[in-house]
C-alpha cells in the first residue's frame, strides 16, 4: 500500500480524538460473539470522520480488531462505498439503474457534472472506484445503482439526503439548498 496522507500531510491515525475511540468501543459492544464483525462499522466510522481510508486507518482498525491489515484492506477495496482518496466536500450520487434511466437520470447526471465543473467522461470512468473532484474541491459525483426509490425516479443523493423526481433544471437550486459552500 502506498501512503495516502491527509490534507495537512499527516497520517490520519495521528489525530484520533477521544470521542472517536469511545464510538469505536461502543460499536465493538454490538458484536459480543466476534470482534471481526465490527470491521465494516469501523471502516464507516473512519471514513465518516476522516473523509477517506488511508493506510494508517487500515492498520488502526486491524489492530483494534486483532486482525491483519489485509483483512480490512480487502473490504475497503471490495465495497463501492469505501474510498482511499479524498472526495470533494459534498458528494452527489445519481442513480443509474433502469427506472431512473427511463426517467432521464443520464440528463440529470450530465447537468450535475456541467454545473459543478466535472468532465462527464472522467466521472463515468470512475463508476465504483474513487470519485472525481470538482476544481473548487467542493463536489464529487458518481453514478450509483438502484437507490430503492424507483417510483419517484429519477433520484439522487446529495450527501446523506435523498432527492426524488429531480429534473435537470432543479440542479442549481438543489445544490445551493443542500450543500455547504466552498471555503
Amino acid at each position: 500500500m502506498t501512503g495516502n496522507t491527509t490534507a495537512n500531510g499527516g497520517r490520519q491515525a495521528d489525530s484520533i480524538p477521544a470521542n472517536f475511540i469511545l464510538e469505536a468501543n461502543e460499536i465493538l459492544s454490538h458484536y459480543p460473539v466476534s470482534k471481526r464483525s465490527a470491521s465494516l462499522p469501523l471502516i464507516h466510522l473512519w471514513q465518516n470522520h476522516f473523509g477517506h481510508i488511508d493506510p494508517s486507518g487500515i492498520e488502526w482498525i486491524a489492530a483494534k480488531l486483532d486482525l491483519q491489515p489485509i483483512n480490512i484492506y480487502e473490504l475497503v477495496t471490495f465495497y463501492p462505498w469505501f474510498r482511499q482518496t479524498a472526495p470533494g466536500k459534498n458528494i452527489i450520487r445519481v442513480c443509474r439503474t433502469l427506472s431512473c434511466a427511463l426517467a432521464g437520470s443520464k440528463d440529470l447526471y450530465e447537468k450535475f457534472c456541467e454545473t459543478i465543473g466535472i468532465d462527464i467522461e472522467e466521472a463515468r470512468a470512475h463508476h465504483g472506484d474513487g470519485m472525481p473532484v470538482s476544481p473548487d474541491g467542493n463536489y464529487s459525483i458518481e453514478f450509483v445503482e438502484c437507490l430503492a426509490s424507483c417510483g419517484s425516479a429519477p433520484v439522487c443523493m446529495v450527501n446523506d439526503e435523498l432527492h426524488e423526481r429531480v429534473a435537470p433544471e432543479d440542479v442549481p437550486s438543489l445544490l445551493s439548498r443542500s450543500t455547504s459552500p466552498a471555503n
Binding site: 459480543p32 465494516l40 462499522p41 463501492p80 462505498w81 438502484c146
Partner: peptide, 12 residues
C-alpha cells in the same frame, strides 16, 4: 433479546 443495526457498504 439484543438487537443491533448493521450497515452495508454499497454492494448489491
Amino acid at each position: 433479546l439484543d438487537v443491533f443495526v448493521h450497515q452495508g457498504a454499497g454492494a448489491y
